[in-house]
Structure formats: C-alpha cells, structure tokens
C-alpha cells in the first residue's frame, strides 16, 4: 500500500486513548494449577510497568 492511499481523519470520540478502564470486581475464584514455579520464575523478570511503556503504531 502506498502512502498516497491514505489521508488523516479526525479522532473519533468513541476511541479515546486512555490506558484501559480496567476496574472491575475483586479477585475471582481461582484454583492454583500444578507447576506454578515456571510461571513465577518468568514473572520475576517482567517489568510490571511494561504495558504502560509499550506503545505501537496502528497497523491494519
């Protein structure tokens, strides 16, 4: 696709860019599966702020 195929449009009021409205109910009923250590090991290496820093251009 060529750049000439596209033109900017004004932002739609329905698609405002705010970090997710992610409030919700409390912790749900969970059952701890076996082998949790591997998940825990990897979690320790993840920056909890990673998603806030992660910005992408829109794709198709």
């Amino acid at each position: 696709m060529r750049d000439a195929d596209r033109t900017p449009r004004p932002a739609s009021p329905g698609t405002e860019r705010k970090l997710g409205d992610d409030s919700g109910p409390g912790v749900p009923d969970v059952r701890k599966p076996e082998g949790g250590n591997e998940l825990l090991r990897r979690l320790k290496k993840i920056d909890p702020e990673q998603a806030q820093k992660y910005r992408q251009r829109s794709g198709e």
């Binding site: 698609t15 405002e16 860019r17 705010k18 970090l19 997710g20 998603a51 806030q52 992660y54 910005r55 992408q56 251009r57 829109s58 794709g59 198709e60």
Partner: peptide, 8 residues
C-alpha cells in the same frame, strides 16, 4: 498496545 493502537 493497550493505549488504543491495534495491529492485525
């Protein structure tokens, strides 16, 4: 990207 940018 959780900020309103989507890719397909």
């Amino acid at each position: 990207d959780f900020h309103g940018a989507s890719y397909g």
